[in-house]
Design a binder for these strands. Structure first.
Lengths: 349, 349
DNA sequence: TATTAGCACTCCCTTCTTTTGAGTGCTAAC
DNA sequence: GTTAGCACTCAAAAGAAGGGAGTGCTAATA
């Protein structure tokens, strides 16, 4: 993303002033307003000339003739990339902790979304981390009754998966014991990715192909391990978009809120964010840049957090393009490090 | 709910015509329209007289002078009551199956909400059944590593609960085995309600009070069993309310959709529905009758379904007062029996 | 050459007025 | 008891008028 250096210092100042003003008021910004707002002591006429240039260059535009200017996507992009007051060094003055510890990951994430929403007044989402690079810590099959076996699998970070396996034929206690031994010795410490179908096939051989039941059970185990838990996404503040007239006409509101209700599109957003290079930083999608078409009139800011063992999740904020980028990014960073803190201090709670 | 018999036959016909017409159009209904709409061949003037009476009796009202009439809550109530009496026997003509089988309860319920929403064009919710009267089928503690034990509990309907228990001190294999025996023999077949703290205390004695670890583990087990899984509620079609102008101004829309996002109020609704007497039927709340104040401008129709073993859940539809009650109630009944069918045919899948 | 004052022009928004039309209530006739 | 007829009401739609914020352009100024 090369910075366009063709803009004069003065144009940059004016552009910045336009954007900041527009972020505050939500109204198109006129030349007279600017001539007071900026410290360059210029008349409105001069500023008008500069504005005309900025418009030609595509950074701002008029919603209609005889209105002030508002930033275009390109303008916002420039602003986010270089004009924003960088608070980089100020991460030290951490805000008060926002999150309370809770014993269930689920609760924490739901709360994170909520806090974020009330903190920013935008719509927010938090995705639960995905397990595929997680490792297996423990596995056990137990007989529930003659026809049911329950399989329990403990992964790193104390994630537990389980399922009931229906078996036609009773498995002897002895065989079950053997199977448990075999599974634990073989699979322990492996990551989910590593447990391939080939490996399972080899296990079947070792366990004795003669038994159909065993084969069936092993297949089921493989399935449990691999069934991607569908991505859990927690949302909050979807109705915040009603606070922004540019998003709250029926059409847009319905689309955006639907996206939050159905979650499918948010999943896409998460996938995209996790796939993107810029992984530890914060990602800003302005308007059409967004991976999710429903949000092409919004800005979307996302961050990735990590719970160790390669388990990554995403935090996202969706709001109008005239979003308070500075505040949002700062808040995201804070939350990011709080999540880190919570989960690295007591990974075993 | 006794039907007000003080209304003449003719008034009833007119009222019904007014309501049906209003349900279709959403516009106030005038006397001229009615004089064509009804088969009683009456002039608009006559109908006007009857309408004036109906207004005095509180069944209809004018949004403003010189407008047609709109049903009042009382009017809707009469209509719904009448409707229910009429249709009682017609449950036989089942519609096509709407639900697909799925192995996870979660999926089925989510899908149920979705189907219902697209079928009715209202906002819908389905609450997952609550387990408190469910019985314990199987319990097992297993050593994950030196400091962790995983407890797995299988309940009726194949509901599985589990948790990792942190222990300071390693529990010997032998002791664990004993404990498992004890737990299974004692608790098997009991309902969650029956497993009291007193019972746990007695268990502790039997297991040998001397061991602190054992005490700790038993406490943890009790906790797992009793921790009320917070009520899971699946929603769909919240944005359908945008289809009804009377609900889709920003204020109402925001309130209703928030209720769907936060879920708290929906929980209240479920609680209320489950507590109500009329348990196997269908409940209709019109306007102010609703247990949830946010929905005082809506009608709410709920039904209870049962998954055996006393596990009850609720299905609900939220829409404008001029809801198509007939269709909604029919659809709810169908869904109710479909849920029954799915879970009683194959309780073990 | 860069800046500014001045002015005509554009177009949105608000407010006010007018028109239209659906619907009512009442009265008098059938 | 029913109906035709008529005056009246009121919301919503359609114009009409004025105000105001803002622009682009030109000509004067430093």
């Amino acid at each position: 993303m090369a910075v366009d250096t063709s803009l004069s210092e003065r144009k940059l100042i004016i552009l910045k002033a336009i954007i900041q003003n527009y972020l505050e008021t939500g109204e198109p910004v006129g030349s007279r307003t600017l001539s007071k707002y900026t410290e360059l002591n210029l008349s409105s006429a001069t500023i008008r000339n500069e504005m005309a240039d900025l418009e030609d260059l595509g950074y701002i535009f008029q919603p209609h003739t005889s209105a002030g200017r508002i930033p275009s996507d390109k303008g916002y992009r420039l602003y986010v990339d270089m004009l924003m007051e960088e608070k980089e060094q100020e991460i030290t003055d951490r805000e008060d902790a926002m999150l309370e510890k809770a014993d269930k990951v689920e609760k924490v994430l739901q709360q994170a979304a909520k806090v974020l929403a009330s903190n920013t007044n935008y719509a927010t989402m938090v995705s639960a981390p995905i397990n595929s690079r997680n490792t297996l810590k423990f596995i056990q099959l137990s007989q529930v009754d003659a026809e049911q076996i329950v399989a329990v699998i403990v992964l790193g970070g104390n994630v537990i998966k389980n399922k009931i396996i229906e078996v036609g034929e009773t498995l002897s206690n002895e065989n079950l014991l053997k199977l448990n031994m075999l599974l634990n010795t073989t699979l322990n410490g492996m990551s989910i990715d590593q447990i391939t179908l080939g490996l399972i096939a080899r296990l079947k051989e070792q366990a004795g192909i003669h038994s159909e039941v065993v084969g069936h059970v092993l297949d089921a185990v493989a399935e449990i391990i691999h069934v991607e838990d569908d991505m859990k996404i927690y949302t909050s503040g979807a109705t915040n978009i009603f606070k922004y007239p540019e998003l709250s006409d029926k059409q847009s509101a319905q689309e955006i809120i639907s996206a939050f209700e159905e979650k499918q599109q948010l999943e896409d957003l998460v996938t995209e964010t996790l796939a993107s290079e810029n992984n530890h930083g914060i990602q800003v999608y302005i308007g059409d840049e967004t991976p999710v078409k429903t949000m092409k009139d919004c800005s979307v800011v996302t961050a990735t957090y990590e719970l160790g063992e390669g388990m990554k999740g995403t935090i996202g904020i969706i709001g109008p393009k005239r979003m308070n980028y500075e505040h949002v990014m700062k808040t995201l960073k804070t939350l990011q490090s709080e999540l880190d803190a919570i989960y690295n201090k007591n990974p075993k709670e």
